[in-house]
Lab assay of single mutants.
Amino acid sequence: ENVVSAPMPGKVLRVLVRVGDRVRVGQGLLVLEAMKMENEIPSPRDGVVKRILVKEGEIVDTGQPLIELG
C-alpha cells in the first residue's frame, strides 16, 4: 500500500512529515480534523515519504489520497 488515503472527510490541520522522511508503521503522518476532533493519521507501513498530496488547511473527502510512500 503506497498511498495513504483519508479515512473520513475533514480538514488537514498539520502535516507531520516531509518528503524524504523515513517513517515507521503507526507513526503519525498528518492530523485531520473531523467533527471538531483531531485525528492523527498513521503510516500503514515502514517506508519513505515520496510525495505529500495535500496542504495544511485543505478540505479532503473520504478516500482522497494524502501521502505517497516509497
Score class of each variant (00 low, 15 high):
V19R: 03
G20Q: 12
V54F: 03
R18E: 07
K55I: 08
S43T: 04
V60Y: 14
G57K: 11
G70S: 06
V23W: 03
V3M: 11
M8G: 07
Q64N: 07
D46W: 02
K11R: 08
L66A: 03
T62V: 05
K11H: 08
P65G: 06
P42G: 12
P42N: 10
V3R: 01
D21V: 03
K36N: 08
L32G: 03
K11T: 14
V23K: 07
P65L: 13
Q64P: 05
M8P: 02
V25K: 09
V48C: 01
G20N: 05
V12G: 01
T62Q: 13
G10M: 15
V23L: 07
E56C: 01
K50D: 15
P65V: 06
L69F: 14
K36Y: 08
V3F: 02
V3H: 10
V49Q: 03
T62W: 10
E58Y: 06
V12R: 00
E56Y: 03
K50P: 13
P44Q: 15
V4L: 13
D61G: 14
G63E: 11
V19W: 04
V49D: 00
P44K: 11
I67V: 07
P65E: 14
E68G: 00
I67M: 14
G10K: 06
S5A: 13
E1T: 01
R22F: 04
E68V: 02
G63H: 13
P9N: 04
V31M: 04
P9Y: 09
V4Q: 08
I67L: 11
I59V: 12
G28T: 12
V54D: 01
R24G: 08
E68A: 00
A34P: 10
P44S: 15
A6E: 03
P7E: 11
R22M: 14
G20D: 14
L32Y: 12
L53V: 02
I52F: 13
G28K: 04
K50M: 12
V31N: 11
L16Q: 02
P65M: 07
V4H: 04
V25C: 01
D61P: 10
V48I: 12
I59E: 11
P65Y: 07
Q64A: 12
V54Q: 08
I41T: 09
E58F: 04
G70F: 13
V19N: 08
V54P: 05
E58T: 09
D21W: 01
Q27L: 06
K36L: 09
